[in-house]
Design a protein around this nucleic acid. Structure first.
Lengths: 291, 291
DNA sequence: TACAATGTATTCCAAAATGGAATAGTACAC
DNA sequence: GTGTACTATTCCATTTTGGAATACATTGTA
């Protein structure tokens, strides 16, 4: 039995719902459903009664829950006892692929010169795959956006802050404005980031709030490409201001959005995890960094 | 972390050797090596010191061992507590693909009419894959050959017994004999079962004991095909007597082997496992079956 | 009774993990 | 040095995984 299944089980039991638990665990509902089914098959007993709309624990499920807590405690004790043997210097960080734009590379460089012995591993991943990996203890710390994050589950540290601007061709009629409201864009072509990215979700949600469905000219592209398309008047785009500033395109202008749509870049780790010495150093380095 | 890795780890720690532990666990050395390495990577610490010829536990390994026992105990307690919720009638059996030839199908039929409510699942697998699956609790009971089995680890019940005979074309010069010694076959073409099967291993080992390397005309085939090849004088074969009797080929004769090479068919389950009610019924049914 | 809302299961498919056989590499006894 | 007895690595076929889309089921409501 895979130990993470214990947590999956406990989440489903707690919320009485696969879809809610899947959300909370940052995995898909179909995956969670399959994994719990596989667990039940492996154990040879049904853990949940799914015949009603609200799923409930079977008797076996109740028994499993009792043991699950103890098993989990043992497991955590094991992990925590191994903590001290981890090379004190080891530190693995995962980040969304915008660390340059938000100056995080510079923090890291300064940390490395302050702690030259730390063996820092830095990996970039798409947002969607970061949280499951972080929860699985594959990384010590993560740089992520705070949107859609269940802040109850994580210790967080604000590192940077950004907000949407409207990227327009300089030839666009609205390019002369000092501010644009989303509702004025209802009939525009939207050039979006990849479906599944947080920025995409944020943009779509914002349009919904403004009362329209954005006409998406999907692009699943890099900022450079998006700005290129905007420059060639294929449409407009919602992009984060600092990302825009970083990449700047001579024929594209960014106009503030009347509605404030904010996104904070945070450093985070799961509350149920103990940090290594190095990770704590890094955390404190970022926390105390003079701004 | 996969719970079975705890057992893998404990086996390596106990024997101080990957290859011995792999043998004991009935998996390949390369697989075990990779799995322990993956475990170490997942935990972020080295558990074994491999720099010396005799591998030893690192400090972290010692710590892991302490917790491993407790974790394992919790896990076993969990499994055992779920036992009672398993449909009392459920019973899954795995067997090598010769149950018809050894009359096991008839035992099963009789058990089913004696216990019509038992939901018996029967699956056939190649010998090599049975023991790992049995150790992983994927099945309650297994019909297997006793050769090369570590009988310390399993409760066993003899079900049938068989021995090698030499299968020859009726036209073969030795076909008139009442008994043949292996050493007389040193220059024959051997038609063998698939590499990796127990019967193949037995045959090769027997030839080695008789002081020669069998010239294999590999066939990785079914008995029918092997007997067909023997009939057409492509070579000779070592086959189990009862298997031969069952399939009988008019142009093939079986001569007893002077050296007795025996193979018992046994019913087995791991000693560290508790049987379900039905499994126990089946066990006792077989044990008390009048012979 | 139909229908909308809200669930879970299933299917499909690309990507990743698994595991054994063969092989390379390494410590140690002699 | 050389052979022996181990572990690591590579290769590759097979299996597993996990998400997107979709099918299917329950329940509350018109």
């Amino acid at each position: 039995m895979e130990m993470k299944l214990v947590n999956y089980f406990l989440a489903v039991a707690e919320f009485g719902s696969f879809s809610v638990a899947a959300d909370r665990l940052y995995i898909s509902q179909s995956s969670l459903s399959k994994q719990i089914m596989a667990l039940e098959k492996e154990l040879g007993v049904a853990l949940f009664d799914r015949s009603k709309r609200n799923i409930t624990l079977t008797e076996a499920g109740e028994t499993f829950r009792k043991h699950a807590d103890r098993l989990n405690d043992e497991y955590k004790a094991l992990l925590s006892s191994l903590m001290e043997y981890k090379s004190a210097a080891s530190l693995s960080i995962v980040a969304i692929p915008v660390i340059a734009q938000y100056g995080i590379t510079s923090y890291i460089a300064q940390f490395q010169s302050a702690y030259p012995n730390s063996q820092l591993m830095l990996e970039e991943r798409e947002a969607a795959t970061i949280l499951p990996a972080l929860n699985n203890h594959q990384f010590d710390l993560a740089f992520i956006r705070d949107n859609y994050l269940d802040t109850e589950q994580y210790h967080t540290l604000e590192v940077n802050k950004d907000k949407f601007v409207v990227a327009l061709s300089v030839k666009h009629p609205l390019a002369v404005r000092v501010s644009i409201s989303l509702s004025e864009l209802a009939n525009e072509n939207f050039i979006m980031f990849d479906k599944g990215t947080i920025v995409h979700e944020l943009a779509v949600d914002a349009c919904h709030k403004a009362g329209f469905e954005p006409r998406n000219f999907y692009a699943s592209l890099r900022v450079e490409s998006i700005l290129g398309l905007v420059a060639s008047q294929s449409g407009i785009a919602l992009v984060m201001e600092k990302i825009f500033q970083y990449h700047k395109h001579p024929e594209v202008i960014a106009i503030p959005l009347a509605e404030i749509v904010e996104s904070k870049i945070i450093l985070a780790y799961p509350k149920d995890k103990k940090l290594t010495v190095s990770a704590r150093n890094f955390w404190e380095f970022i926390r105390d960094y003079p701004r």
